[in-house]
Amino acid sequence: MIEGYGFFDHVLPRMLPSLTCVALASLAWLIPLRSAGSQAWILLGGVAVTTLTVWGIVTAFVRRLPRFSRTTAIAVLAAYAAMPVAVPLIQLAVDGTVTAPGGSVVGLLGFVIFFAAVFLATLLATTYGFGTLLRRAVRHSVFDLRNSVHLLGRALPALLFVTLFLFFTGELWQAMNRLSWWRVSLVIVLFGAVTVLAAAARLRDEIGRVEQDLSLPTLSAACQGTPLAGVPIEHLVPNGQLPAMPLTARQERNLLLMLASRQLVQAAVVGLALFTFFIALGVLVVTPETAKQWIGEEPEASVLLPALPVALLRNATLFAGFGSMYFSVTSMTDTDHRQQFFAPIIDEIERALTVHAVYAVVRETIPATLSGRGIR
């Protein structure tokens, strides 16, 4: 939600610790493992410790110097771009061949693809704050687990009413006995995509609603406890209502990631409970003879859990994914479920949008005050 958020001014400095970590970790390829013998893993451990130490130092440096000059930015990019060529050439000169730590031969193209993929992944993760979103999702998942009795007590009865009778369908057991795990995984991904699409549609409605209620009391309440708490908002809103501040496409995508990550984590808690329930139900009710009759042949046993038919595990996975999607969509549309499960998430997004509106006005109208408070 930073205005003027750009690659050289904001993204690249935040990428530097990760890029440095990857560049130093690539030094593992310089270790001649064949000649190092039993000391190879000690050398690799030394590289790992050095990499983590330098990563911490660079992170502290970036926090003190959050912006780079154009010359510094170009130097960082040039140094990283040289690594895919420098690492194999140095190892070729030292060891006579270019190999990975496991001993397989790696070509120059492989290094280029690896470094390019890491750069692209780091760019996306930094631009959209994947690390922060992941930490927030983990914290909220712990909260959901602490309140799992309340969460599951409200969610499971309705979900079981929708899915329970389908569990005893013979045709479904036949399909799950033949369906491969990667196809089941694609179905789960499809359910997750539906959840994200539903969250995107709901987010657009919520943004429009917040933009219509940027009144002075709402702005003042939202800014409490933030660096904008002391800003004279009444002078910024002479008419008592702040005009709507349109968001960029990147900002909307970032809000969608925040909402989707919270919804998916909450759905995962419900899905885990559903998976456990259907496994227990299948063990208690569906005997091996019944499973054989439904499937029409001897059920395929699971590799990890030989006592359970693989059709039971796939059925439980399928119903857990469907139930999670149903719960997520219902929590955004049903009035009762929305108040219990969706309102806390929307409250955070509403506050972020409201504070962002004040921040955008302050950035445009009172640059001296903004600079003095250290707000960027």
Rank of each mutant, 00 (worst) to 15 (best):
L257N: 11
R253D: 06
R209Y: 10
L242T: 10
L216K: 05
R262G: 14
I233R: 07
A249S: 12
L214T: 09
E206P: 01
A260D: 10
R253Y: 11
A221K: 08
V270C: 12
A280H: 05
L242F: 04
I207A: 09
A249R: 14
L257E: 08
Q263C: 13
V265H: 03
A229W: 11
L228A: 06
R209H: 07
F275V: 00
S261V: 13
R209M: 14
F277I: 15
A244C: 07
I233E: 05
V265E: 08
P232I: 04
T226H: 14
L219D: 02
P238I: 04
R253N: 07
R250E: 12
Q224E: 14
G271M: 07
Q241W: 04
M258I: 10
R262E: 15
E252Q: 12
D213G: 03
V231T: 11
Q266E: 11
G208E: 00
L259R: 15
Q263V: 15
G225C: 13
G230W: 05
G271K: 14
T226M: 08
I279W: 01
P246H: 01
H235A: 09
M245L: 07
P217F: 00
A249G: 12
T218H: 05
G230K: 06
L257R: 08
I233N: 10
S215E: 15
E234L: 06
G208Y: 02
F275Q: 00
T248Y: 01
V237N: 03
A229L: 07
G225N: 07
A273G: 06
G208S: 04
L214H: 00
L236A: 06
V265C: 06
G225P: 09
Q263F: 12
G271I: 01
A222K: 02
L264W: 02
Q251L: 05
P217Y: 03
S220I: 14
T226R: 09
V269W: 01
D213R: 15
S220V: 15
L264Q: 11
V231S: 06
L219G: 01
E206T: 12
P217V: 06
F275S: 00
L242A: 01
Q251D: 11
C223Q: 04
A222E: 02
S215G: 09
L242G: 03
T226S: 12
L247M: 04
V269E: 02
Q266H: 14
R209A: 07
